[in-house]
Write a protein that binds this DNA or RNA. Structure first.
Length: 844
RNA sequence: GGGCGGUUAGCUCAGUCUGGCUAGAGCGCUCGCCUCACACGCGAGAGGUCACAGGUUCAAGUCCCGUACCGCCCACCA
């Protein structure tokens, strides 16, 4: 073919040009005629589209793309879908802020309502359905921005296989799997204390908790024995004394033996509570006696459950103390309680401290402390514990058999890097409850159930009404169960729809089933599942990775993938963890515009697997330089002739020696990729390529500009080497390699075959000859540099001293060496390696 | 409180699994060079007691023990 090598090659515009071409040509389209063993399938993480874009979004995805491209070139048919995680709280929160709205489920749907141009201020309330419409509207906009970024970065995903966790197919998959979990008894509902976010008004799961160090104070408070003597406890939550159901001490604690079995009365409220024994009570903490409240913390829940204590809750779901005086309080106590009614816990705490001080039940001043307090990871106020009915999926926390099976799955999974597996193991070993999947929110996949209401108006939660699979997905608040009429909704003798949605992880834990169309396309499913790799961040091992493992284990009895590749954290340029709340988020688009996609990809590929990496424009500059070097090197390598020369024309020693080194590079890069170490593969290719341009190209340049078989040998070797380098770099620098490939090759480099050393093994020889010539050339360059003369300066005769072996190797490339060094001739002697030259005007 | 990862040149990082010439790269810095692929370039140079302390070994950046600091994860908040 005629070559179309530009005079001034540039990186500008390559992203757009090739993104469009790849789309037109279907370069990355999945060919579903391939069988499972021919397919390499990737369970791509669906990014949270309602979050802001930052470099963390780029880092892992680019690394994964290198695997996709390597496997594709290695002959696999790559199944590489892309999804968006758009359901759940992050989207709701973004919609609230973006439009200035809040969801009030009691309002009727307003068909006239349209998205506000600007955020309402003050916030207006809208119906649930209007709110959900806004969620869909905004996530679609967000998804366009993400797709644009992925395309600009050159991710080789098949955009025909994209999904959103809120789309109909995802909802159907999620609901169908939930119903199967229900049918097998793996999903169940239970009325129990749960951790509750008072602002978001929803239950949260163990995996969504985080501890934050908060200031607090130990209050030393007197309860009273029957003889009137005080017994002191220490508490950081004196406001919960009205919720106290018992005092507890360690059964071994000698100080309190006589009290076990007796009762004491609480200060101010004068409620009689037992003193009980439990081994969780720590004699070292406080006075050794703790008060048990329903519920101040998760230990209270444990004590309450294991000691079968009564429930005396006062904190409501809005986080305030209930206004009615609790029925277990006497009239006098109710008068005290009225001081607390309607307050938030921190307000009630101050009030109680005052009251206790007045009554003389507070011993000394409260001691200020810092202690860890449980928060919802997205929340702003401490979690409270309220009792409510919730749905759970078994995860092994209460079933040692299942827990063992899931631990074994973690062992079976191939982790990259390996040390990440301990995070999984520790999480599974530390589980303290089944997976709470229901959320009291609006935008998400609904719990697909209704419950019968008996004639006296009681809801029968134990016998949910289940929809047929064909009807999924359903919204129980608008669909009517079989055998009922809409008029029977919420009526005695009728039904009630489950008002809750499932947590986003309950759906995203099914990404293999969603992308593989487990529920409606068994043919595709069997070609892609179990999937090959699950790439993801280390922070969501306990959530996404674990939950996906649970769902696949329960349904299919297998691991959902063979390998998990865990990327590192992105740190900001000052090596701090990037976080929206710290305001140090670096967004990718300006960097891409400044340095180019290849440069940003290069930076991402320089981060080792699993290693935390700082945003570093210096590294991006190196990547840009490499991409430009490829353009220019290619221009030289294929600029001599339009003909494709058969490799058999490669006869000259340095040409063959170069290929021997290249074969080694190919084998290093291939080995690294097989170990999922893209960074090492890039390093090998890069090191080799720079040596190629710096030494090999300089050594053969003069010969290449000549004529005859020796020149043809160089032309052929340059062509062959370029072809190999383009393919080695293609996974990392997809645009520039494709651009150069298009100058002289048909088709896409990304569908070209990954290089193997066998391609030129029969031509490669004289390993070491190129290295020896380079070493001599290096000495000459140093001499010229020391003499401060041009590299083009003539050096006269070269006197090379070296071992017999070295001399022999140097002799093979002597002609090229003389030309590159601009020397007249060369003489050899044996001894310690050295090079002398006759520099003409060394004074200049 | 438990665990994981890290600490190598001014900066960003390789090298540690599998111990072995004089510890590498790029950036930055210094000094040169417009050499017909590339000045968005090319060549050369300076720069490191490999966090600290002990141990194993003929030999330790690399293996073992401990300490400090940084980051992250987990933990029942009395």
């Amino acid at each position: 073919m005629t070559r179309n090598v530009p005079d001034k090659p540039t990186l500008d515009g390559l992203e757009t040009k090739w993104d469009e071409r790849w789309e037109e040509d279907g370069t990355y389209r999945f060919d579903r005629s391939k069988t499972r063993d021919e397919v390499f399938s990737i369970d791509t993480p669906p990014p949270t589209v309602s979050g802001s874009l930052h470099m963390g979004s780029v880092f892992g995805y680019v690394q994964t793309d290198t695997h996709a491209r390597y496997r594709r070139m290695s002959g696999k048919e790559v199944f590489y879908p892309m999804g968006w995680d758009d359901n759940g709280l992050p989207t709701e929160r973004r919609v609230q802020n973006y439009y200035g709205v809040s969801c009030d489920p009691s309002l009727p749907y307003d068909s006239e309502f349209s998205a506000p141009e600007a955020a309402h201020d003050p916030v207006i309330s809208i119906s649930r359905r209007n709110f959900i419409e806004l969620c869909h509207l905004l996530t679609q906009e967000d998804e366009k921005v993400f797709e644009e970024l992925w395309r600009t970065l050159g991710l080789s995903v098949d955009w025909n296989h994209s999904y959103a966790t809120i789309d109909e197919h995802s909802q159907r998959t999620s609901q169908k799997m939930f119903l199967r979990n229900l049918a097998r008894g793996e999903a169940y509902s239970q009325e129990a204390p749960v951790l509750w976010d008072v602002d978001f008004q929803t239950a949260v799961a163990q995996a969504e908790l985080e501890d934050r160090e908060k200031g607090g104070a130990y209050h030393k408070v007197a309860f009273h024995k029957t003889d009137g003597e005080p017994i002191y406890i220490e508490t950081s939550r004196p406001e919960l004394i009205c919720s106290c159901v018992a005092l507890v001490a360690n059964p071994e604690d000698e100080r309190y033996q006589s009290l076990f079995g007796s009762t004491v009365t609480s200060p101010l409220f004068d409620v009689e509570v037992p003193v009980v024994a439990h081994e969780l009570a720590d004699p070292e903490k406080g006075t050794g006696v703790a008060m048990i409240c329903t519920f101040g913390d998760t230990t209270d829940v444990t004590w309450w459950r294991e000691l079968a204590l009564p429930t005396r809750a006062v904190i409501q779901r809005d986080g305030r103390f209930q206004t009615e005086s609790p029925e277990w309080l006497s009239d006098d106590a109710a008068a005290v309680y009225s001081e607390l009614a309607g307050l938030f816990p921190n307000q009630a705490r101050r009030k109680m401290a005052e009251l206790l001080a007045e009554s003389g039940d507070l011993d000394g001043e409260p001691e200020q402390i810092m202690h860890p307090v449980k928060f919802y990871e997205k929340g702003d106020r401490p979690l409270e514990i309220v009792t409510s009915r919730q749905w759970y999926i078994r995860n092994g926390a209460r079933d040692s058999g299942l827990r063992t099976e899931l631990l074994e799955k973690g062992e079976e999974l191939h982790w990259v890097p390996g040390f990440m597996s301990v995070r999984y193991r520790h999480w599974v070993e530390g589980l303290n409850g089944d997976w709470l999947i229901s959320r009291q929110r609006f935008f998400g996949v609904g719990v697909p159930l209704w419950y019968p209401i008996n004639d006296s108006g009681d809801v029968d939660y134990d016998h949910p009404v289940v929809p047929d699979d064909e009807l999924l997905p359903i919204d129980p608040s608008s669909h009517v169960p079989a055998g009922y009429q809409e008029s029977q909704r919420d009526q005695p003798g009728g039904f009630i729809g489950d008002p809750d949605i499932m947590d986003t992880w309950a759906t995203s834990s099914l990404t293999p089933q969603i992308v593989g169309h487990w529920d409606d396309d068994a043919d595709l499913w069997n070609r892609v599942f179990p999937m090959d790799i699950r790439p993801q961040g280390p922070d969501i091992i306990r959530t996404w990775l674990f939950a996906t493992t649970v769902r696949a284990h329960l349904e299919h009895g297998v691991l959902p993938w063979g390998t998990a590749t865990i990327n590192g954290w992105i740190l900001d340029p000052d090596r701090k963890k990037m976080s929206k709340s710290w305001g140090n988020v670096v967004t990718p688009m300006p960097l891409i515009e400044e340095f180019g996609s290849e440069a940003v990809r290069y930076w991402a590929c320089n981060g080792r697997p699993g290693v935390d990496t700082a945003v570093d424009t210096g590294v991006m500059k190196i990547g840009r330089r490499l991409a430009i070097k490829i353009l220019n090197g290619a221009r030289f390598a294929i600029g001599f002739t339009d003909a494709d020369i058969d490799p058999s024309a490669i006869t000259q020693p340095l040409d063959r020696s170069m290929l021997a080194g290249l074969a080694e590079t190919v084998s290093q890069a291939t080995g690294a990729f097989e170990d999922y170490d893209y960074a090492r593969a890039l390093e090998a290719a890069e090191r080799s390529f720079w040596a190629w341009t710096d030494d090999y190209v300089e050594l053969v340049k003069t010969r290449a500009y000549g004529e005859g078989p020796a020149a043809t040998s160089a032309h052929a070797a340059l062509q062959l080497a370029l072809s190999v380098y383009l393919r080695l770099f293609a996974p990392f620098l997809p645009f520039v390699t494709e651009e150069v490939w298009s100058w002289w090759r048909e088709g896409s480099v990304h569908r070209a075959i990954w290089p193997v050393a066998d391609e030129f093994a029969n031509i490669a020889s004289d390993p070491g000859a190129l290295e020896a010539a380079s070493k001599v050339l290096g000495s000459v360059r140093r001499a010229k540099s020391d003499a401060k003369v041009s590299m083009r300066a003539e050096v006269g005769r070269l006197k090379v001293t070296g071992s017999a072996d070295e001399v022999e190797l140097i002799r093979r490339g002597a002609d090229d060496l003389l030309a590159a060094a601009r020397a007249t001739d060369i003489v050899y002697s044996e001894g310690e390696f050295s090079v002398e030259s006759e520099l003409a005007n060394s004074s200049n």
